[in-house]
Design a protein around this nucleic acid. Structure first.
Length: 487
DNA sequence: CGGCAAAGTTATATAACTTTGCCGGTGCTATATT
């Protein structure tokens, strides 16, 4: 077997491995399917990049976002690796055909799960020797595969068709239940699992319960002004993110922008770039912002509303303090936050009526006509058609019933996840301990500073520049905030 | 479900109240049209 230490030095210029990298690579090289849960920002991509220089054949990487594929391919090219390709909608029809005809020329092939549903793509991949099948951000299988992006849950079928290649699933946050779900959908019977702690000692946590909108916005402005920056503020809605950014600018945090999925691609890239280059101090965002934001010095993450589940919360606050310096996560909870999530979950699925009408009209209408006629969103439409395709044998009535069943069970699962985070919010237990418990871990030693329950001093997270900024504010704002402090 | 703004209603002419209507996240790809 090749000396992986030597490859690490020659190909990557590192002299030592970081947490979990060596373990993951060793188990892959011994031929075991591997699921690795590694802390954020510890170089997960090395886990498939290094074996690519030892194993025979190409590495296929399934990636959830176009921007992630772009980042990874650029990173590889910068290192001098030329045989890299991302097969996605950025390629023209002719480019795509060319690439598929010469797939054996590439060492690294990046693709979305949707692209893997194409017969042409599968056909081309079958002609190539695959050394490794990688699923990056593998929690997406469980988080999105059931409804939002159903092609994620068909990756197991793809793997089978490609002859069960050696597989690596990478993620930063997954409970044991989610890890089971990942392996199940990949149709992997036995895998070596490397699970490292989700605890991030550098990140302190605080939960604040606030009532009305006014009180909440005031508190937000105060936090954003005083806390050391840069920081991210998560909102549950696009409009909230936009209004939040506007509000903070009015309160003197001028280098603020908003970010959400409703913006065009160029603006999104621009904001992310500006934030990475420290040209922006604060980004007010929906959960669209995050994956692929590799920034070392984020000092705070605020949640303006409760997230939909504890896993998302851990992922989102995990973007802070990657440099190891202390950072703070503040969750601003208002009773009723949960209603928004339950609403959105409901809206994601078709109603009974829509499901039955689908079967009534499916023979006489095109898919576009169906969507229009039944006013189905594309997510709802895909949810139905996914099960129709999957279960071609059964009668319409049976399929309709199974779709309704699936919807109910998904809604219940999401509700359970909401209940978990609500219990955590209302609990008097140490926040860190609560999170670790959910991930079936034990806290080995008390962290200092830890969380609001353990007696956290938020004042120690003030930025050094905040005094200056305060002088720049107008007297009305200062007076208002003084009055609030008294009240 | 619930927050909020705009429209409507009231007792008496502008401010305070009630009702109504609206809105709410995550992303891939293919295909047709400019």
């Amino acid at each position: 077997m090749a000396n992986i230490q030597k490859v690490l030095m020659e190909q990557f210029g590192y002299s030592s491995f970081r947490t979990g990298q060596k373990e993951t690579i060793d188990s892959l090289l011994s031929g075991q399917h591997t699921l690795s849960m590694l802390p954020t920002g510890t170089g997960k991509s090395l886990c498939y990049q290094l074996p690519a220089y030892i194993l025979e054949g190409a590495v296929l990487i399934v990636s959830p976002l176009l921007s992630l594929m772009q980042d990874q391919t650029e990173q590889l090219k910068m290192r001098g690796e030329k045989s890299v390709i991302a097969i996605n909608s950025f390629l023209s029809f002719t480019e795509k055909r060319q690439v598929l005809n010469q797939l054996q020329n590439y060492r690294f092939i990046f693709m979305s799960p949707e692209m893997l549903m194409s017969r042409k793509v599968i056909h081309a991949l079958k002609q190539v020797r695959l050394s490794l099948f990688v699923v990056d951000e593998a929690h997406c299988i469980s988080q999105w595969g059931h409804d939002f992006r159903p092609d994620y849950r068909l990756l197991g079928e793809v793997r089978e068709e490609l002859g069960q290649p050696l597989t690596l699933a990478l993620t930063a946050t997954a409970t044991s239940e989610v890890r089971r779900d990942i392996l199940h959908h990949l149709k992997i019977e036995a895998a070596k699992e490397w699970v490292f702690s989700v605890d991030r000692p550098a990140i302190a946590m605080a939960v604040e319960q606030l009532s009305a909108r006014r009180e909440k916005m005031d508190r937000l402005a105060k936090l954003a002004v005083s806390l050391e920056k840069p920081g991210i503020i998560y909102f549950a809605s696009k409009r909230g993110a936009e209004e939040g950014a506007e509000w903070l600018k009015e309160h003197g945090v001028t280098r603020t922008a908003y970010y959400h999925g409703g913006m065009n691609q160029e603006d999104r890239i621009l904001i992310q770039q500006q934030f990475l280059r420290d040209e922006l101090e604060v980004v007010c965002a929906t959960n669209a912002f995050g994956m692929g934001v590799n920034k070392e010095n984020i000092r705070f993450v605020i949640h303006y509303q409760m997230p939909s589940q504890l896993e998302s919360y851990v992922q989102e606050i995990g973007r802070a303090g990657r440099d190891g310096r202390k950072a703070i996560a503040v969750l601003m909870y208002t009773p009723g936050d949960e209603a928004l999530h339950s609403m959105m979950a409901e809206a994601e699925f078709p109603t009974d009526e829509q499901i039955y009408s689908y079967f009534l009209y499916k023979h006489s209408c095109s898919s576009n006509e169906l969507m229009q006629k039944l006013s189905l969103t594309d997510v709802q439409y895909r949810f139905i058609s996914h099960y129709v395709k999957k279960d071609a044998e059964s009668s319409d009535e049976e399929i309709a019933q199974s779709i309704i069943c699936k919807r109910q069970s998904r809604l219940e699962q999401k509700k359970k996840k909401r209940e978990v985070i609500l219990r955590w919010i209302h609990s008097n237990q140490c926040r860190r301990e609560g999170i670790l418990e959910y991930f079936e871990e034990k806290l080995d030693a008390k962290r200092e500073p830890c969380c609001d329950v353990c007696g956290l001093e938020l004042a120690s997270y003030s930025g050094s520049s905040s005094v200056q900024e305060r002088e720049d504010e107008n007297w009305e704002v200062i007076l208002a905030s003084l009055l609030r402090e008294k009240g």
